[in-house]
Computed example of a mutant assay.
Amino acid sequence: MSMVDEFKAFIARGNVLDLAVAVVIGAAFGKIVTALVDGIIMPMVGMAMGGVDFSQLFVSLDGNDYATLAAAQEAAAPVITYGAFIQTIIDFVLIAFVIFLIVRSYNRMRPPKADTPAPPSEDILLLREIRDSLKQRTP
């Protein structure tokens, strides 16, 4: 089988298409969650913490004090934007939680697997064989 034929068979299985759809939907969902965190959750958290805007939290590494993150970036100062990091962590937690809920719901909707009994152990098989041979010997 040539490499082109193998690739066609791989694509035709459907798993690649399912994966592509999942990636596109996941990217769109990530944008939705980011908008939710940036536009709704973080302003409420900031308001509850005394009006803090998390997107503006930073530490300047050059030793100078800057009034805003924009001023520090305009001065080309090296900064650690830990507020953006906090927002990204909240994004991740929310996305992970929603994915957990989706997987949990999917697993509950799936029909339960039929419990197949485990095959008997070697000891049981040997005992059965002995029992059957004894039955054959007795008149």
Rank of each mutant, 00 (worst) to 15 (best):
D18A: 12
G39Q: 02
I40Y: 05
I102P: 02
A22V: 11
V52C: 00
S121W: 04
A71S: 11
P111V: 04
A67H: 03
I11K: 10
G63R: 01
P112F: 10
V33M: 04
E122A: 13
V52W: 01
T34V: 08
V98W: 03
V21R: 09
P119E: 07
V23E: 03
M47C: 14
E122F: 15
A70I: 08
Q73G: 12
D5Q: 12
M44A: 10
D53C: 09
I11A: 14
D5Y: 03
A22Y: 10
P117T: 06
A96T: 07
Y106F: 03
V52E: 01
I80R: 09
I80S: 14
A35E: 05
D18M: 11
S60L: 07
S105E: 10
Q136M: 10
I124F: 13
R137H: 07
F97E: 06
P78K: 15
K31V: 06
R128K: 14
P43Y: 09
T68Q: 00
I130Y: 09
A67D: 11
I89V: 15
G26P: 06
V45L: 11
I99C: 02
A114Q: 10
S60T: 08
D65L: 05
T138M: 08
Q73F: 14
K31Y: 03
I80H: 13
D38M: 09
S2W: 08
M42W: 13
P43F: 02
S2T: 13
G51M: 13
V16T: 14
G50L: 01
M49I: 08
T81Y: 03
M49H: 05
A96L: 04
T88E: 13
R110E: 03
K113Q: 06
G26Q: 04
D91G: 01
S2V: 02
L36P: 01
I89Q: 08
P139Y: 14
A84M: 13
